[in-house]
Amino acid sequence: MTHVGEELTALIDGALAPAERERVEAHLAACAGCRAARDRTAAALAALDRLPAPPEPSPGFEQRFYARLARQRADAPRGALRRLPWRFLAPLAAAGAAAALVVGVGLRERHRQAFIADHLDLFESPELVASVGDVAPQDVEVVAHLDELEGTP
């Protein structure tokens, strides 16, 4: 005869499906040992009904909760930023840095071109022209011989 174990507790808790309950009750009718186990368990659990009632929350419990809720909501934007995981922040930061670099390089180039336009006279110096990174050597040669070229009809 297979005794009932988990089913016994589930039977006491009213947690068995009808067919299973019938099977367990049929076993109990024939097994004094399992009946005794059921009675012992049910009696011990009945003792829980005599526990003192849990105490009421202390005065001001609800007010303290709503004060905490208000504080939490006030802190929410900062808290949300702090809680953003780095795996999301790192790509954002990298994209931001890349965008800043592109914008920075573009602005620098525009600034350089504006500077050249404003100071074309300076570029009559071959040394200065040579110091500009993207000027071809033949252009430096032309600037070095501007006098000759200007004298040419």
């Binding site: 012992r40 368990t41 009696a43 011990a44 003792a47 005599r50």
Partner: peptide, 11 residues
Amino acid sequence: AAEALAPFAPG
């Protein structure tokens, strides 16, 4: 629980 609370059960 049945073992621990046996002393508090009827009997």
